[in-house]
Simulated assay, not measured.
Amino acid sequence: MRALRRVKAFAPATVANVSCGFDILGFAIEALGDQVTVSFNDEARLRVLRIEGDGGKLPLEADKNTCAVAIHAMLLHLGSRQGMDIILEKGLPLGSGMGSSAASAAAALVAANVLLGEPFTKAQLVPFAMEAERVACGAAHADNVAPAILGGFVLIRDYHPLDLVPLPVPEGLYCTLLHPHLELRTEDARSVLKQQVSLKDATVQSGNIAGLVAGLYQNDLALVSRSLKDVIAEPSRALLIPGFYALRTAVMQEGALGSGISGSGPTIFVMSPSEEQARRVGAVAEALYQELGLGLDVYYSAINRQGAHVLETA
């Protein structure tokens, strides 16, 4: 069998937190994502040759680029000094709350892993991607990178040690992603969070995350709807997103299951029981943001069950 010299992979956008699951729950979406091509070089170092679609904002330096940082963590674990060249094609807007940095790291890792003969399972790649998140936003969380790599809904039961739990995806579940034309840095969105929460809020949040997981397992969309409530992070972060509460009221009146901030924002996700419902929600959102005088990108997506995967090999 001929050894591979180049692998191109895709990783999807993700919704992290999913309202009540702050830093412990995320899911992958279809269509949107990043593509990364990884090839061997003979220089025993990682090089980011080119980045497309970022408007020149992302660093080419290997110690600052999420693709290279993730691959470096993997090679370090293997004790390998293999050199690799990286080309990143951004399909996700930066600072959008749709797991942009996670998608880059996930695609890079899947490509590099295949190039090396797949020494790791997909789940084993997640800690390496978390190191890239540490560089990107200062926190090595997994609620974007785990679903970006594995697909579907993923619960992070614990971080020490890392314990990932893939969850079932109810039939018909659809998502509308609403991306207002403003950039919100993850660091800024994390800085507004309270460092302590009340016992009452912790109890409410625990009930909601338990209810959401139960709803996914039982294919009970009514229970999913009742559980999509966040009393810890959302009250602080919603103030950074114009029209957030007006939008929530409008989409719930339209029949949505629930809504919340995707990751750290400003993207808002809305869950619906069908694609038709998801598109009605999108039309309502567009009208509302037109009144606010703020541009809005609208995406419709089923839940991506595949996660990061190879597109081409050579």
Rank of each mutant, 00 (worst) to 15 (best):
H160K: 15
M74E: 09
S191L: 13
S274M: 07
S274V: 06
R47M: 14
E275N: 13
S236V: 11
R134P: 08
D143I: 08
L92A: 13
P168M: 06
N41M: 02
L294G: 07
F244P: 01
D63W: 14
I303T: 05
E276T: 14
G91N: 00
G33M: 07
S101K: 05
V310F: 07
R185E: 14
F153W: 01
E61L: 13
L46W: 02
R279L: 09
E61H: 12
A13C: 03
G56W: 08
H160G: 13
T267H: 04
L199S: 11
S104F: 12
P147F: 00
L75R: 09
G151Y: 01
G97Y: 08
S19F: 07
A106I: 02
D230W: 02
T186A: 12
G79P: 08
R305K: 14
H309Y: 15
D54Y: 02
T267E: 04
S206D: 10
G307E: 00
L162E: 00
D201S: 13
S225C: 08
V251Y: 07
I149K: 04
G138E: 10
I71C: 05
G55V: 09
L60R: 11
V48L: 01
Q253D: 15
K194C: 14
R5W: 13
V204W: 13
A102L: 06
A214Q: 12
L216I: 08
C20I: 10
C137R: 12
E118F: 09
V126K: 04
A238F: 07
V204L: 15
A287Q: 15
P93R: 05
A202L: 12
S262W: 07
S264L: 01
A140M: 10
N41E: 01
F27W: 02
L164V: 03
G307T: 01
S96R: 10
Q306T: 14
G95H: 11
K122N: 00
A308V: 01
T267R: 02
G21D: 05
A214N: 12
T121F: 06
V18W: 08
A68V: 07
L109N: 05
V251E: 06
G56Q: 06
G265K: 05
L239K: 15
A13W: 03
A11N: 03
G263Y: 05
L88Q: 08
G258C: 02
D63P: 11
F120W: 03
N144H: 01
L199E: 09
D34A: 01
R237P: 09
S100K: 10
V145Q: 04
F27D: 00
E171P: 12
D85C: 02
E291F: 12
L182V: 04
V110G: 00
I87F: 14
M74Y: 09
P273D: 10
V126C: 04
H77N: 11
V126T: 04
K194D: 15
V251C: 06
D54Q: 02
T14G: 03
G95I: 11
R5A: 13
G56R: 06
